[in-house]
Amino acid sequence: MEEKIKRVYIPMTETGFYILFCLREEMHGYNIIQKVKQMTGGEIVIGAGTMYGSLSKMEKDGLIQFVREEEKRKLYKITELGTEILNIELKRIERLYKNSKGEMADE
């Protein structure tokens, strides 16, 4: 994996994480906003500007790819590179969580 991409994306911003996490399934920007709002009990509502900018950047960096268009809305899905990045981040968060509970990481 490109080291540069890794440096840019890890650790991830909360917005970035949720977007990538949601895109394990095919979705458009507004879908993601609604899903994240629901997942976080209304705590995180991603703004349109932030969503559009994040999707463009992630697409440019090859973390997600455009799949198709549905009534003017572009649908995206995570790529292999994106999955790799997401997994690294998930491990990091898991370790953080375990450590915060006073447990040591497995490895």
Partner: peptide
């Protein structure tokens, strides 16, 4: 609110505006 959209291609504009519309702007 103002957004600076220098990097939006013509063919992407409909998707861009739709996202704002969906979020109530």
């Amino acid at each position: 609110q103002l957004d600076f959209n220098d990097n939006i291609r013509k063919q992407d504009k409909a998707d861009y505006l739709q996202l704002y519309k969906d979020t109530g702007w």
